[in-house]
Amino acid sequence: MAHRLNISGSVLDQAKVNFKEIYDQAGQKSHEAIAGACLYVACRQIGAPRTFKEICAVCTVSKKEIGRCFKWIIKTLEKTVKTISSEDFMMRFCFSLNLTKQVEAVSTKIAKRSVELDLAEGRSPISLAAAAIYMASQTSKTRKTAKEISDVTGVSEVTIHQMYKEMLPHAEELRPKQ
């Protein structure tokens, strides 16, 4: 799984440590679900988070099952993981979309400002990142469609458009001053 996600050795090592700690307590739980959840936890512990959808794409276990194992691991091992934010995903998503560093910087500022203005309340950081990238790319030379962004981020086109529409009335406040 780690190889297919192009995950570094330090994350893989942490995932192995997590798996060894939890394995004896697993009972009837799917070993693949536990391995996927351990990898997800390790990514967050090391500071290189992946989405549940990305983990699910490289294994045969459902997002729901990995989510359950994630919660169980955190509770059982009494682990704490860093809260994820849209900025954690921005560089990787923008790189995958072949966007410039300037568009990435604008996207990051839009996402941060959206949080400050409480426009992202109750929204996933990944959805916020996708909408911020969409907004930033609309004013750049490398304009991306919601479909292109959806393909990279795993956020539906509908969600991207909905968040964009909510952010649009605040565009002047969200975009960085030149």
Rank of each mutant, 00 (worst) to 15 (best):
M1H: 12
L97N: 02
A146S: 15
K101A: 14
K165M: 10
R113E: 07
K147D: 11
P176F: 00
C69F: 01
A171C: 09
C59Y: 07
H170F: 15
K144V: 02
F19V: 03
L119A: 03
V81T: 09
R68L: 13
R92S: 11
S62I: 02
K147N: 09
G67F: 02
S62L: 00
V17L: 13
I7D: 12
S124I: 02
G36K: 01
I110P: 03
C94V: 03
Y23E: 15
W72L: 00
F93K: 01
F70G: 03
N18D: 10
A57E: 15
E157H: 08
D88W: 02
Q138M: 12
M163A: 07
K53N: 14
A120S: 12
R113N: 07
A136P: 00
A26T: 09
A105D: 14
S10M: 10
A37H: 01
Q102M: 07
Y164A: 08
L97M: 05
R50H: 13
N98Y: 10
E104G: 03
H170V: 03
Y23N: 14
S96A: 14
E157S: 14
S150G: 14
S114N: 01
G9E: 15
E87W: 03
E32M: 10
K75D: 15
A42K: 08
E148T: 08
E104L: 10
K16T: 11
P49T: 10
V11Y: 09
